[in-house]
Design a protein around this nucleic acid. Structure first.
Lengths: 204, 204, 204, 204
DNA sequence: TATGAATGAGTCTTCATTCAT
DNA sequence: CATGAATGAAGACTCATTCAT
């Protein structure tokens, strides 16, 4: 029995190694510039070995996104668990979202800055997997806004509308900082907090 | 003489057709997934014909950006020429920016949602041409904010910071609506105007 | 009538210009690396214009070789016209042959260092033209040897054999110096004269 | 174990097949006219398969030269091992050089009759590999001449000069016979031996 | 489980050549 | 006479993927 377990563990280890390596490479070089061979070379396995663990290149990305966005959810949950005031929770959550994007620029861009039309010819399951990644977190945003309203710290209003509007603008901060890396931005910390201040201030 | 003119017109037509087709393909499939062959196939010309009009693939995007952003500038200038109140001008300009993106999603995504690292190996001149595209419009945004301050209709503040923050968020609205086309957004008109309202309101 | 003449002269001028330019480029970059466009660019004509003067690329080379080897014949004739002693004439002729090759390395290599099999798919006329270029000069070599024998300054012998043997070795000097340009040869003047000395000495 | 061996053997077979085919094509059509595709077509493999065995086109020629000139060295060593008189050894070595060229016309022409300028844009390592090919044999020629001088069977003199001069002329015999295959040469055996006789005779 | 060999489709680009004007 | 537009074929090379072992 121990043998089977060790094997299963080893198999899982390799799977993770592939995902991690792919993530590193995607960030370094961009999705299109990463080939299966490059991934295989870096983990020192044969390219064909990767196909024992993932259906194809897109399957890697899909799994990567799922795994990564699981982390976003974990981060947001940690903030919730702190039991802070609703507005403070909202602020920290939005900030966590931005930081998360900046920490995982490649995944972020892949999921949120790629027109969905690009996935048209993709196996449906993979497409949905990539596309659905962020939905969980969007739900949390709505919850956060609802909590703030209930606490009376922001104006009453259409939660769906407020959430979408808020997400769009937080997304803009995140995506802009990632994709225009060479733009001469002012101090990023200040830029982010100033923007969040405006965003949250405009909810009152 | 008529012959030469017709020829020049035809040549220009083809040039534009290449640019338009390339733009369509870029948003449909992403920059890296668009090949000279694909462009050629769609316009039903031989791939080599494209090289009669553009030096290489990068030359296409460079021209694409320059041409398109010329239009954005024109639109913004039209608004300025109306001689409206500074705040109204600001509002309309931001709205024009968003509409421009939604009208030219391929160009917009290409210029603003492609991580700059993707073009690392590009000839410098082309790179500058692409990156410089949006700078003109960003300058106009700063002018607009300055005018509002001068008129006392928004709070005094660091114009550079305010402009960058504002751009990031307006960019988020634009990019989000383009790239997440299948997200069940609420009524777009309302979503845009609500967001702009928050954005401008938070400047007072 | 003057008009027609001028036109004919102009046409011939362009023809020569193409040949000269092609020759320059062949020397600079090698036959295969010279394209019709490059020739056209340098003379500032359209590529298609070249086809008004030459059937194709090979036709250029064929004419080039004919023209160039005409010069070899002229040089050899000049030496003959000096009316020197047969051995001196022979020596100077062989030397002229080598110098000619070094002066026109591209043509020389093209005619003498290209396996004839490479011209198999060439229009027969062009092939023969290239191939036949050197025949005239080979005849002169035989004449020269015959004259020396008649004068009793070299051993009697099979003129054809002696001429072929002599040509092979003189060709070796020429071709070797051209093709192995980066070999650390000793002083070329000395190398050539030493070799010719051995060559002629071995005829006595 | 037998499986691995058979596979290794098969892999090596294909490698050799590629080299042989490339050599044939190089002489038939010239270096520039041989494409990876043509090589692949002739061995009835996909072009990409070649890249499993050779880094690029230049890698093929580099290996081609190294492999072939190894054989020349072997032949010359065999002659040395016979322990013959120095002059006899010299004669047989020169003859072996010529025969080697005639036996491997493609390789010979490629290495010695291709102007070095053609490889200007080559990776340095490959370039050195190609150029270094013949150096070993040239060294042996100098040794042979030195031995003859020491034995007093040829005149004293500058060994470097004599060797270069001798090589140029032996090269001429070899290259001339290969490249002018359609020239109506007299009996080749006689032509070669006659020429070698003159060459060696002129060293005394 | 892992892999080495193989491939077909594709990448950008250049070229000699044709033809209507 | 000269040309601009166009093209088909080809260039070297890369890639995701398959499959027998």
């Amino acid at each position: 029995m121990g043998v089977a377990e060790r094997r299963a563990r080893e198999k899982d280890d390799l799977r993770k190694k592939i995902l991690d390596t792919a993530a590193d490479l995607f960030i370094e070089q961009g999705y299109e510039n990463v080939s299966m061979r490059k991934i295989a070379d870096r983990i020192e396995y044969a390219p064909s070995t990767i196909y024992l663990h993932f259906r194809d290149k897109v399957d890697i990305v899909a799994n990567l996104c799922a795994a990564t966005f699981g982390e976003l959810d974990r981060r947001l949950q940690e903030i919730l668990d702190l039991g802070l005031a609703p507005l403070e929770t909202l602020h920290r959550s939005l900030r966590a979202y931005i930081d998360f994007g900046l920490d995982h620029p490649s995944h972020y861009v892949f999921v949120f800055c790629t027109p969905t039309s690009m996935f048209k010819d993709m196996e449906q399951s993979s497409g949905e997997q990539i596309y659905g990644c962020g939905m969980g977190s969007f739900g949390r945003l709505k919850n956060g806004l609802t909590a703030c309203m209930a606490a009376g710290v922001i104006r009453e209003g259409d939660v769906e509308l407020l959430a979408q509007s808020t997400w769009l603008m937080v997304h803009g901060i995140t995506a802009g900082l990632i994709c225009q890396a060479e733009f001469p931005f002012v101090d990023k910390e200040m830029l982010i907090e100033h923007s969040l201040g405006r965003l949250i201030g405009s909810l009152r």
